[in-house]
Design a protein around this nucleic acid. Structure first.
Lengths: 252, 252
DNA sequence: CGTGCATTTGACCACCTTCAATAAAGGTGG
DNA sequence: CCACCTTTATTGAAGGTGGTCAAATGCACG
């Protein structure tokens, strides 16, 4: 509660490129601070984080990390939208998720990163050394617990997505997707409650839902004709009948 | 390295049903000990676990825990096979995974258990209080780290399964499944390298792969006619041509 | 031997894909 | 500023993979 000057604490050593690093962030000023992994940390503990993070910016279509690569870093989305995906050798692609502000990615096992991550919009990222972060769990056990909680929530979402991919019809898939994205983005963008912000392409949506772009496009048209949604631009949809949308999404 | 008498350490207080509880396990004698969460614990630390676990046995088709229920417990499979699943209101089912010896389940978020867990075979389980386990992370941080590692590996597998469900053809799905099960069970059953043990029904396989039983059955027949596998009984398959199987699984 | 359940097999059909044409939007260079 | 090209989305027609329905087979159990 004491007013303190915003000076960076312990600059230097941990950041290879030491003293005047413009990319070294001030975690206490971070916009996504309260919705991200760091949400569990007290103000004074944020210094610990500042030591091991670095700001990174990416433009649309730039790759952030690739499936199978040495998973040196974890990333947290500070702003923008990121897609995670996996590919088969012949080019078939499955999008695993779309990430917005506050969401963490870079999960991996002994085979390297599980997914490729690419920027969809302009993206601001917080890049953390995985090793350094895991070492911090000693000093800040809450950080480790939060990490576990996040991963378990991811797993819960993954289960829901498997149900969608394996058992839902095209129309149900699209409705589920619209509800999920609406839930996610309404927290972080100040849009009217029924606006859905869709920064990703039809092709991304198709690869997320296990469909083709043509099927996605047709279902958009049908939902629009049935007055469940209204299509303004491609990136901008409005929910007209939320009850119907929910009913269709959960399988009538 | 010192020979000690196998006496239970600290019996009582933590187990509600105190003194003469036959279900209170001796963790040091546990078969699945070295392939499970407890693999990270030293002998003397196992006592800590004995306090919070209980043995549970289930018969085929018995429910262990249900989607949405208060996630009081975590479970580790000591023996047998468990299926995790999610359902839509009209009965469509998606199986999220098949678990064998050493595997952990009971994952949950604020909405309760993510999945329903049912016994496929006779099953021996180690049941842990979630709360008590999470409290142990203070004293045994390695346990928390192992838990995180397990959850991340689960997440990695889930990503692979999403790729399968969204983008693979029926034949590719079945081949992928056979390879995965072969990998899993060869570690814990002493079967000849190319034998695949399938305790689950065709209906379970179908619901795992996002197909119908008829399609699964047809694909089994085709693979058999093409001499990729050989079908002895329904629970017993032999790999005849592992290279072909791998090629088909990864999409030609 | 008959009942009940799981699996296999066949015939038909539908949902979604594939292929193709068109329209709309965005970027580049003259 | 507009012609030109590329990229993205929509729409239509045709086709195929896998689903639905139905019957047959196999197997366990009383």
């Amino acid at each position: 509660m004491v007013a303190v000057e915003k000076v960076r604490c312990v600059p230097g050593s941990a950041n290879d490129d030491a003293s005047l690093d413009l990319n070294a962030p001030l975690c206490e000023n971070c916009n996504s601070r309260h919705v991200s992994l760091c949400g569990v940390l007290k103000d004074i503990e944020l210094c610990e984080m500042s030591e091991l993070v670095k700001n990174v910016t990416k433009h649309p279509k730039q790759i952030i990390c690739s499936e199978g690569d040495n998973p040196e870093y974890l990333y947290s989305v500070k702003d923008g939208c990121v897609r995670l995906s996996k590919m088969l050798s012949d080019g078939r692609r499955q999008i695993i998720g779309f990430l917005f502000m506050g969401e963490l990615f870079g999960f991996a096992c002994e085979n390297g990163y599980s997914c490729t991550a690419e920027a969809i919009t302009n993206v601001d990222l917080c890049r953390m050394s995985r090793r350094a972060l895991f070492e911090k769990f000693e000093k800040l056990p809450d950080l480790g617990h939060k990490m576990l909680e996040i991963t378990q929530t991811d797993m819960d979402n993954a289960c829901g997505q498997m149900l969608l991919l394996g058992r839902k019809k095209a129309k149900e898939k699209l409705c589920s997707f619209l509800i999920d994205i609406n839930k996610k983005t309404s927290k972080i963008k100040d849009l009217s409650e029924d606006k859905i912000y869709l920064p990703m392409s039809r092709s991304d949506i198709a690869d997320y839902l296990g469909l083709t772009i043509e099927t996605v496009s047709r279902q958009f048209t049908i939902l629009s004709k049935d007055c469940v949604i209204s299509l303004c631009e491609n990136t901008d949809v409005t929910i007209l009948d939320r009850d119907r949308l929910n009913l269709i999404a959960s399988g009538e």
